[in-house]
Design a protein around this nucleic acid. Structure first.
Lengths: 236, 236
DNA sequence: ATGGCGATTTGATCAATATCAAATCCCTCT
DNA sequence: AGAGGGATTTGATATTGATCAAATCGCCAT
């Protein structure tokens, strides 16, 4: 990436995200140092490709701030989102011991800071250090679980149900009222849920009767438990 | 599983499948011996649960013969297939260093022989032997790729397109005529492709104009390349 | 606070697929 | 070879969500 701003220094916020990322959390100091020697940090503006489907894969990434959208293109140019990576998420790790080309496009959805891990270097570290191999296994596993959740959501639930599930999953409390703020544009959320933006919008409005109010990025829920158990989450 | 037929001896066919399974292929003799000490073999009749969602996960499995259907249930009892495991496929490996409960149901679709790997034992082996850790990473990665393919298929293609893709993927030749036999009931295939059985049936009949003939489990394709590039694989 | 513009919503329509019911097929067992 | 029964197909209809167009909203820079 020609216009990437690369530097070795992390600001405090990014460092905190990195150390709490599931991939790195729980590793010893010594191991962290070794892993971070295979890492560089860079910041990209919105709408830049981090990776393109078919390109040789020589690095995987951990999002430190911002969001990265992973998607594939059909022959006619329609896009299918695979997932949206938030701070702390890792992507393309599954290419460590497998294919050597990216299997999807990765595009920043907004200005984004990334930790870039050199594939070859980490491959070698993982062979030497069981702790690193374990961290890789754990984080790919989490990825797989999330992807499986995505399939079952798509196949089991309607649009309003998936939206309700998403809202509930982001509410801090299990019961009572809640107010959350979407961390990104509705556009992105629609893609994540496998919906056209119009369908997301209609899903929100169909959730009004379950006590959901939407104003811009702010979503208010009358009662989280009621939403979880509402018709919208049960029909089909 | 009370009615499981457990034995340590593998017949030749099952042994060959096991050694060629992506998870084990390429491992050294010594490592294989150690892994197989954490393994037992068992044969189950059709329609037996190998695992149930929520149950503590103390083993993962490699299919040696037969088929295992992985699926989740909605609250109302509708089922969503996640994948169908064929001989050589491994499942539930992603629980090695993560959750300790199965995240989905696993049900034999027909009489099935399985290699059962003790989770705890393999966990320890993977910590000691980088080669094993590497094999685990590679096979979970493959799993993740397949699951991602599944999502993009669902989101990008219509029923006839997905069916056409499936047929093409199973044809031995890239071009010219082909005749394949479905390895299992159409029921299962429908689930794999995220379709109701009726929709699969209609998809097949809509592929007649692309040169596909179906009689029982036998599928004849006039020209594989034509099918790959047909409208059925391109519309949308 | 205000203007402007991209993002979102709303409306109308259409295409895809689920669902339920009935007819037919095909595999297996005798 | 024939019967029986589950699997599959076909038909009719209902739902869901995509698509295209137009109206409106809300965010951001003045």
């Amino acid at each position: 990436m020609a216009d990437m701003n690369s530097n070795l220094k992390l600001n405090n916020r990014d460092r905190a995200v990195l150390l709490k990322a599931p991939f790195l959390a729980g590793l010893s100091q010594e191991i962290l140092v070794r892993l971070m020697s295979a890492m560089t940090v860079s910041t990209l503006p919105a709408r830049k490709f981090v990776a393109r489907e078919g390109e040789p894969a020589d690095a995987f990434y951990c999002v430190l701030s911002g969001y990265v959208r992973l998607f594939r293109l059909s022959r006619e140019g329609r896009e299918a989102d695979i997932m949206v990576c938030a701070p702390g998420d890792t992507f393309a790790q599954c290419l460590l011991f497998g294919e050597n080309a990216y299997r999807y496009n990765a595009l920043t959805a907004e200005p984004t800071t990334l930790a870039r891990f050199d594939m070859q270097a980490v491959r070698e570290l993982a062979q030497q250090e069981p702790e690193i191999a374990k961290a890789v296994i754990a984080s790919i596993s989490r990825n797989l679980q999330d992807t499986i959740d995505c399939i079952t959501n798509d196949r089991l639930f309607t649009a309003p149900q998936r939206v309700a599930n998403y809202i509930v999953s982001r509410c801090p409390a299990e019961v009572g009222p809640a107010s959350i703020r979407l961390p990104f544009q509705k556009n992105l959320l629609a893609g994540m849920l496998g919906l056209a933006p119009e369908a997301l919008s209609r899903a929100f409005s169909s959730l009004r009767k379950a006590g959901v109010t939407v104003r811009g990025r702010i979503i208010q829920v009358g009662d989280v438990q009621a939403l979880r158990e509402s018709d919208a989450s049960r029909t089909r």
